[in-house]
């Protein structure tokens, strides 16, 4: 596929490198390109200029691009870039700088297909690392909806029960189940919960604490608040 990345900062360059390593065509647009040493022998094309100018994006190949990542640190540039990209038929991804704006852009910015907030993604990874192995956030589906993977511990009140016997909170659904050594699969209602088994649950943030208590057990309580700060 062909991609344009606007913004040659840390987020833009890393994204460009990952795409280039997977053999996609990538062009990075950056106003200070000639001043940036990292760009001198990069494995992708570089266009020097302001990504919010249509002529610059045309030079970068917006007409042929499949998708455009507006990943600069400037929200105004990013939004205008997405408007131009959308007009040229690209899928558009916009970087935002603050959490609360995610909902606003999703609701109002029809030119933007997807919104990303790098600091939030970093926070999810850091949170998972800090909390350790029992609970892992897999994805934020919506502002208050998260997919989490939980591991059955010695403290799990439901250890020994079968999946069909477990009553999860109303605002949550069991999506997948895996035995300690086995692969994840669709949940078999007759499977029993044993130490080390893993469950993937879709849950509202408000229900996460209860889900955690039911699957992981009381030892997780003290960590519960730290892990629901995603909204």
């Amino acid at each position: 596929m062909e991609f344009i990345i606007v913004g040659g900062g840390r987020v833009g360059l890393r994204t460009a490198r990952v795409l280039a390593e997977e053999d996609h065509g990538v062009t990075v647009v950056e106003p200070n390109a000639s001043a940036l040493e990292e760009l001198s022998n990069a494995p992708f094309d570089v266009v020097e200029g302001d990504g919010s100018h249509e002529v610059v994006l045309e030079e970068a190949g917006v007409a042929e691009a499949d998708a455009l990542g507006a990943l600069s640190g400037d929200l105004n540039v990013n939004f205008v870039t997405c408007m131009i990209g959308k007009a040229h038929g690209c899928r558009t991804v916009m970087r935002i700088d603050e959490d609360y704006r995610e909902g606003i852009y999703k609701q109002y910015a029809s030119e933007v297909d997807e919104v990303i907030h790098p600091e939030r993604l970093g926070a999810i990874a850091a949170k998972n690392a800090l909390i350790g192995g029992n609970i892992r956030a897999v994805a934020d589906i919506a502002q208050s909806l998260q997919v989490v993977e939980l591991e059955v511990t010695n403290d799990s009140p439901t250890r020994g029960y079968t999946l069909s016997e477990i009553a999860l909170p109303a605002d949550s659904r069991l999506l997948a189940f895996g035995k300690e050594e086995g692969a994840m699969a669709l949940p078999d209602p007759d499977a029993s919960l044993e130490l080390g088994d893993r469950l993937v649950v879709l849950a509202d943030f408000d229900a996460l604490d209860d889900v955690r208590r039911i699957i992981v057990g009381s030892a997780a309580d003290t960590l519960a608040n730290a892990s629901t700060g995603g909204s």
């Binding site: 929200l75 939004f79 609360y100 704006r101 909902g103 606003i104 609701q107 109002y108 502002q143």
Partner: peptide
């Protein structure tokens, strides 16, 4: 703003005396 409830803010501001028009905008203000 410091909230994603742009709609509510827009309504609250629009209700104030003297306000002609309010727009939700893209960029570093909301």
């Amino acid at each position: 703003a410091n909230t994603g409830e742009a709609d509510r803010l827009k309504r609250s501001i629009a209700e104030l005396e003297g306000i002609d028009r309010v727009s939700i905008v893209a960029g570093d203000v909301d």
